[in-house]
Design a protein around this nucleic acid. Structure first.
Lengths: 363, 363
DNA sequence: GTCGCTTTTGAATCACGGG
DNA sequence: TCCCGTGATTCAAAAGCGA
């Protein structure tokens, strides 16, 4: 095993096809594999924002496949090669969206990996749905799987718990998109890679499922987020990438990374601002029933609750705030403190229901 | 179609196997299917909390399958039967966890459904991971799919936006587990069903993807959350369930549900549904005079109104939309919100004139 | 340098009816 | 079946810019 590990091209990028490259490396030599494969988006026409600006879509050749079966073959090929490379106690992370993640997940199971968790990356600033035809696609899914169901995989439970303010790390991770200074640009100012992942995602993955010195391989290296995070956290890394431009950008990026001293590993203190609660949630939860009547603070006005969380009176319909402002003839109104419901014969502001929901969220 | 619909056993529970039961119903007769199939949990041995109390896990006979291929056969069988039942513009929701959702999602795609979103139910109060060997499994995944990629599926965009306090509904939904008074209990005080879903989840699904009066079918009815939510929201429902105990509990539960009044079911409607008003009507009505000058939203362009309800600039002539697109160099343009006229020195969109006409039409 | 306003942008399976 | 015209539709965060 020692000699095999010595043969590994550590802390370098291998240019070329990832299946061939992985098969040329010694078996059972890698501790962790992180993979961000093509998603096989099936985009049809162009998309414009309401202000008529054009959305810069992912239309690169590497994301085009000839149907599901071609994508499945591709997926099984790279997963098989990846599994051969992993040490017996090694593990795999894959990220994807609803376009591909179900096929990838089924293949992961079929090949004998053992799924440990699926993890949701909740984006704080996703791209909206511009045409109002679907829900805002605000998350991506990652699968964490051990090589087999008998693998003694690495899981740094306490490190992740510490990273999460002392409570167990959950399977949903909130994180912004990769933007700003972190986003790599070409000389002409365009984004160097269409789907660069935030380094914070890799930070959490490496802290949670590797030890310092472990070997992490990324078969779809792109502009090297995995390598940058690994170098920063004192892990060894191997990247495989086909596109020369991405390789060049990744090399320059990783060269600039300054490895962190052990004391620097504590980051991302969670910001605890009071979460926004839509009034609709009160109705869904049936803390108030559709059709129920609310009274104003002063008792002079009444409104009825509708099933979509709006209010309706004889003259107005809309949000709790809009209808409150309308009946008062005021420019604005805080509906939470203005509207009241009856409980035990007394008038209670609906804000107590919001407080109840908030208490559950932070508990 | 009418006669087929008349043959549907509406607002009832069918006892028996869901594939047989679905195949006995008329094809293309159902608007929405919500399915909460067995999760194929692969639990090895019993699970204990740190204090050695035993966790009451899902180990019922209906949740055990003989490996992945048996589960895949089962999944494809019920999905095929469900797809046959759906109207051409119908849609499907399925919920699952990482144990089964990848296999289910792949089957959904293979059978020709068209995935619209995957939606994450983020639990506010998940069961912790007692052994500290994995992340807290704090979410489940739902797949929303239209029958085909050409289906004109129902999506009440504005109602969901209202339910979310005026911003687009995202693909991650935060909601507590079904506990407390909502959780059905047996006479001996045990939970009546191991995986009862919160009714709030179904509330949001039905508000977002059905109309009042639509037929909603649930092939794994359990204790009838789908039926309860459907009755409450004025939708018709059909449940299929094998276990007599669940059927009994569901019947009693749904009988107690008080439907919301019709006025509470009217939700925020889409602008798309409003009657079309030609711009020429504005000119005919002399709300704008022929020869009058309009300004663009950003103030950078001007156009003159002609007597036939077209606009003209130095370079272009045509409808309000065509000229707006032309001066902006955009592929398209909503002239109603783009062009403005002067009133009391302020720039006002011509859309207010359309709203005035529409108000008179409905008055 | 700072403040405030405007512009830009992000893995997207993103219309529909009439002729 | 396709073609064409109308017109509905966006949120958070960062960058850019002018005062």
């Amino acid at each position: 095993m020692k000699s095999e590990k010595a043969a590994l091209p550590l802390d370098t990028i291998i240019a070329g096809d990832c299946v061939k490259a992985m098969n040329a490396l010694p078996a059972a030599s890698v501790d962790l594999i992180f993979a961000d494969p093509p998603y096989n988006l099936q985009l049809k026409g162009e998309l414009h924002r309401p202000d008529n600006s054009r959305v810069d879509a992912v239309d690169d050749a590497w994301d085009r496949f000839d149907g599901f079966s071609a994508y499945d073959r591709f997926t099984r090929d790279w997963l098989k090669a990846a599994r051969r490379l992993l040490k017996p106690d090694g593990a795999l992370w894959v990220i994807g969206s609803y376009h591909n993640i179900f096929r990838v997940g089924a293949a992961v199971q079929d090949l004998g990996f053992w799924i440990l968790n699926d993890v949701v990356w909740r984006k704080t600033n996703p791209m909206p749905n511009f045409r109002g035809k679907r829900l805002t696609n605000a998350h991506e899914t990652m699968i964490w799987a051990a090589r087999t169901d008998r693998s003694k995989y690495c899981f740094n439970y306490d490190a992740l718990k510490a990273l999460n303010d002392g409570v167990q790390m959950r399977s949903d991770w909130e994180m912004p998109l990769c933007t700003g200074g972190e986003r790599l640009k070409t000389d002409s100012g365009e984004k160097a890679h269409p789907t660069q992942k935030p380094e914070g995602l890799l930070h959490r993955i490496l802290i949670g499922s590797t030890q310092p010195g472990d070997v992490v391989l990324d078969p779809f290296f792109g502009t090297g987020t995995t390598g940058a995070a690994a170098k920063r956290l004192g892990r060894r890394w191997i990247g495989i990438e086909r596109e020369a431009d991405y390789i060049k950008a990744a090399r320059a990026r990783i060269a600039d990374v300054v490895p962190a001293g052990p004391e620097a590993l504590v980051v991302t203190a969670s910001k605890r601002k009071e979460p926004r609660v839509p009034f609709g949630r009160v109705v869904e939860r049936r803390m108030l029933e559709p059709g129920e009547v609310l009274e104003s603070l002063n008792g002079r006005h009444r409104a009825r609750v509708r099933a979509d969380g709006t209010l309706i009176t004889a003259d107005a319909a809309g949000s709790i705030h809009q209808v409150g402002a309308a009946v008062e003839g005021a420019p604005s109104c805080n509906g939470w403190t203005y509207w009241h419901f009856r409980r035990d014969g007394r008038r209670v502001p609906i804000d107590v229901l919001r407080q109840q929901i908030r208490a559950e969220m932070t508990a």
